[in-house]
């Protein structure tokens, strides 16, 4: 915790981290159930899907883009994976592999259209959102796909050494995404493209390749999230994931990623996703209805951005 605090030079991230701690302490005082291992296990498990999506979209937003097709990609990959995951058909690696690849393919298609046509990412991924939903319904013939193998369902419901599998995936991909963003050439280029696309081009960076990479990466992570969701609800649901893109974008923004590009961190996004999870869990414990929860969540998103813009001015 201390290292996160010490290393976080971004005031916005710092501020949101403070808010996160305060809210957690507040909930702990009001409801002793909140600060239990079992409750936190539930929170983080629930957060894992949104966090994976948020990691993906953080890459995209840092380059100055956006991806609205996340939710539909979740549905497509879920349906694809489920259709290959019936007991005694293929080994479990097949539905996982093909599912992730279908996400990668959709993401790559997003990237291809965005870089070749120069149509704004907002429009392209909005189109892909509808296409993806249609594909999910076509592939599943509009019906949920159930009767999945135990080994596949383990991904969503199993535990290793008492730690739920989704949490392990979350931790692994948080580390991978952080390293990619902070330690690799691609990561540096992602910041450069979002910080000043023209200057990045003039510096010899192949901007289109960087954009292709982030949308593909985002699609792959969405694929993973789709598999996680399908395994958790033990069904491939063509209507699953609707609106997930907004939660993911919200997590990134709450975590200090600027929608104008060039700034953002995975740690911030993780805190953003956890904050969303903690608040909805806390409000549940306080018996606040989900209607009010939406109002609170919206206010927090706006509040986070206001906080960030104040910090920018300083």
């Amino acid at each position: 915790m201390n290292t996160i605090l010490a290393r976080s030079k971004n005031l916005g991230q710092y501020g949101i981290f403070g808010a996160f701690v305060v809210i957690c302490l507040g909930l702990a005082v009001i409801n002793p159930q909140f600060m239990t291992v079992s409750n936190w296990t539930i929170i983080i498990t629930q957060v894992s899907i949104n966090a994976l999506l948020a990691f993906g979209v953080t890459f995209v937003i840092i380059t100055g883009g956006i991806d609205l097709s996340l939710g539909s990609m979740v549905a497509v990959t879920g349906v694809v994976a489920a259709s290959l995951a019936h007991p005694d058909t293929y080994p479990v690696i097949v539905p996982i592999g093909v599912g992730v690849l279908s996400g990668v393919a959709m993401g790559a298609l997003n990237g291809l259209v965005i870089t070749k046509s120069k149509v704004p990412p907002f429009i392209v991924t909005l189109g892909m959102m509808t296409i993806g939903r249609g594909l999910a319904l076509i592939l599943s013939k509009g019906r949920p796909i159930s009767n999945l193998s135990d080994s596949f369902n383990f991904i969503g419901g199993g535990s290793v050494l008492g730690i739920p599998f989704p949490i392990l995936i979350l931790v692994v991909f948080f580390i991978l995404c952080t390293l990619l963003l902070k330690k690799t050439v691609l990561g540096r280029y992602i910041y450069a493209v979002g910080g000043n696309e023209q200057a990045a081009t003039a510096s010899g960076i192949r901007v289109n390749k960087v954009k292709m990479a982030v949308y593909t990466l985002c699609g792959g992570l969405a694929g993973l999230a789709g598999i996680l969701l399908t395994a958790r609800i033990t069904t491939g649901q063509p209507n699953a994931g609707a609106g997930f893109e907004l939660d993911a974008i919200a997590a990134a923004i709450i975590g200090g990623t600027s929608t104008s590009g060039g700034t953002g961190t995975m740690t911030g996004t993780l805190i953003g996703a956890l904050l969303i999870g903690v608040i909805s869990n806390g409000l549940d414990l306080l018996n606040v209805t989900s209607y009010y929860q939406q109002v609170v969540m919206g206010a927090i998103i706006i509040g986070a951005v206001v906080l960030d813009s104040w910090n920018q001015k300083k």
Binding site: V185, Y191, G195, N196, G204, I205, T263
Partner: peptide
């Protein structure tokens, strides 16, 4: 401003941007 540097990045990151590999 338009083509020269990435304002949000550090001096070091800007200096190595064209020779990062």
């Amino acid at each position: 401003k338009g083509l020269g540097f990435i304002p949000a990045m550090t001096i070091q990151d800007n200096i190595t941007l064209s020779s990062l590999p």
